[in-house]
């Protein structure tokens, strides 16, 4: 089906593929614990101040978060199709699907930027400009927004890295003599992209749908 180049340290294509997947999953385990640590802080504070968190969450733009969830789910779909095309060495389809993934990733970041602007405008950014006139427990409300900005900010940083890596792959696949040679690497980019999607799958209900 494919014509993978096998590096000298591997017995065969299957072993090479397993090694690549193992390495990526090991990295993703560290990423689970990175976001997991932040989500643990979130859980502890939310259990301590459930009412203040629900009140603070209601000031977020839920519709932007919901649209962004749709955008990310779509991007995971196109990324899965890009990996599928990669396994079959179909250059044009890989590039089309990667370009779609990149466009959806950029759309997510654009919507996120608009949302941050609106949050700033609403005085929801922790610090001197933080003015929760609506809040009965301002310190807890501020903690919610600190966690909101750290969690979504770190997620957006991961998205940005993903978009840049996908852009590099579009350039590589365009010029390579054999797209099938890059099938394993493309699958690893897919693993990373889907992981970032999974992080958002948890962030959306935890941050936006508290009430």
């Amino acid at each position: 089906m494919t014509h993978l180049a096998i590096a000298p340290q591997f017995d065969d294509a299957a072993q090479q593929h397993e090694s690549a997947a193992l390495g990526m999953w090991a990295f993703l385990a560290t990423e689970v614990l990175f976001f997991g640590g932040l989500l643990t802080v979130y859980t502890v504070y939310r259990m301590a101040h459930p009412a203040a968190f629900a009140e603070a969450s209601s000031h977020l733009y839920t519709w932007i978060g919901a649209v962004n969830t749709v955008v990310l789910l779509l991007s995971s779909w196109t990324m899965a199709l890009a990996v599928h095309a990669g396994a079959h060495g179909e250059r044009a389809r890989i590039i089309r699907m990667l370009a779609a993934t990149m466009a959806l990733g950029l759309a997510f970041l654009l919507l996120k930027a608009v949302e941050y602007y609106l949050d700033f405008h609403d005085h929801l950014v922790p610090g001197r400009a933080f003015r929760p006139d609506w809040s009965t427990n301002a310190p807890a409300a501020q903690m919610f927004f600190i966690l909101y900005f750290i969690l979504t900010g770190m997620h957006a940083a991961h998205m940005l890295v993903g978009v840049l890596v996908v852009a590099c792959f579009v350039a590589v696949i365009r010029t390579t003599p054999s797209p099938a040679r890059h099938a394993n690497a493309l699958e690893l980019v897919g693993l990373y992209w889907h992981f970032v999607d999974i992080v958002w799958i948890f962030l959306f209900p935890l941050l936006y749908l508290v009430a």
């Binding site: 999953w25 689970v32 693993l191």
Partner: peptide, 22 residues
């Protein structure tokens, strides 16, 4: 997402252990 998009369905047992470790 993990089973279908991330291909855990086709992964070797060792890869699945790595995925579950996190």
């Amino acid at each position: 997402v993990a089973v279908y998009f991330m291909h855990l369905r086709f992964a070797t047992p060792l890869t699945r252990v790595f995925a579950l470790a996190g």
